[in-house]
Structure formats: C-alpha cells, structure tokens
Amino acid sequence: MGVVFERPKSLTQQKFHYCPGCHHGIIHRLVAEVLDELGLQDRTIAIASVGCSVFAYDYFDVDAIQAAHGRAPAVATGVKRSRPESIVFTYQGDGDLASIGAAEIIHAAARGENITVIFVNNAIYGMTGGQMAPTTLVGQETTTSPQGRNPKNAGYPIRMSEMLATLPGASYIARTSVHDPKHVRETKKAIKEAFQVQVEGKGFSLVEVLSACPTNWHMTPVESLEWIKNEMIAYYPLGKFKSAEEAK
C-alpha cells in the first residue's frame, strides 16, 4: 500500500496549540502542502502575525518572522524588497488584517508587492477571548457585542477581498472556505495558485479563508461547519475576485 495522505514536510512536528475543531490547523497544513508541492520550503520566509496564529513561526518548518499586530504586510515588504528571490507569505487573522492592519494590507496590495497573504476570517477575535472583529456579522453575539453586532453602533463587517480586488496592484484575490472536504480542496487550489503568482513574479496574491472558531462561537466543531455554510458564506460569497490574467 502507498501513502496517499501524510503530514507535509513544511510543517514541524510541533503540536498545534489551537482549540479542538479550530480551522487554523487545516489552513496551516494546506499552506505546508503547497510549499512542499511547489518545492518552496527552502526559499520561503513566513511572517506570523498577532492573534491565535501568533505561533505560526513554530509550526511552519521554514525561516520565519513574528510581526507586530497588523504590520505583517509591511514586514513582508521589507523582506521581499531586500530578498526578491525569497518566497514570502504572511498569515493573518481578521483582526490583524482587516482592523489594525487595514492600512498595511491595502498599501501592500496597491504597490503590487510580490507576496502572498493567507487571510483567515473567522469573524471574531479568538486569542483575546471572543470580542467583536471587523468581520463579525450583523447580529452576531460576541463578548463586546453581547446583544449582537448592531450596525448603528458598530458599523458593518468589511468584505476585504472585494475591496482589495478593486486595486490595480492586486493580482490574485480569492475567498474560499474549509467547512467540508470539497471546499478544503478548493482552498488548497487557491493557495497554490496564489503562491504560483508569486513564483512567477506576477505580484500581490491573497486568499481569504472562511474559518471556524467553535470555542468563541459557542458551538461544537460540527455545528460551526453549518454556521460557515449558512451564515458566513451568505455575507462573504466564495470565489475568485481577481486572477493574474485579469490583473492591471
């Protein structure tokens, strides 16, 4: 018998610290599989951000940098500009990318930085204990929107992919989900395309992955899958918003 599925080489043996059913582990694995398949492990530099995925530098078996909250795209810019031959990716959550780091992501995309961004959108601040995020859905209860997000007070959730796709500098923008095996495969395909865009020097690529936070959503991991499918995708439609061919 031959192995059809095993742990990718671009992951270390470190056990993930994530809660049961958290999708960070799936997305980490997909990124690592893509790095393996494209033969990029030795030339890759990962930029971890602040949030639950802060320890990403321990999980990816590649050179890595831990960045300040929201600043990963700026750090990645500094890395890529000084080492254009390296493959550089950031791994950021929704608080990091869509709130405190909104300026950095927009300008990295606008400059067409030849980097790849993995954007994990779980509509909540996980690490700090379930507060409202820039991507929290209207009506969604969090510890800082206990009656549900009220747009009159808290405004509306931001569709980052659609917004970034309007920028001429952005070459590849896709939103995917990992709520079932089919969508996991599609996410991997998108991540692979995004890295290929960088390898070919075609500019800024970003994959937004809709992801579950069962602990702070107060759901079981299996219930969380349904919530992504029924609630999140309704507001955050899946798809490719920009491909390298139609860029510029």
């Binding site: 192995v3 049961p20 095996p181």
Partner: peptide, 23 residues
C-alpha cells in the same frame, strides 16, 4: 475506501492514509 476526507478535514494532522496500488 481511502478517500482521505477525514485527513483533509483534520485540523491537527492526526491522520495518515494509505491505499492499495498507490506508490
């Protein structure tokens, strides 16, 4: 049937899948 759906969904990379006829 070795479809590996379990492994695809596993967030902790717990699962290895082997299949007849695959090298």
């Amino acid at each position: 049937i070795g479809c590996a759906f379990c492994a695809w969904m596993c967030p902790d990379v717990v699962i290895t899948v082997e299949k007849e006829g695959k090298a």
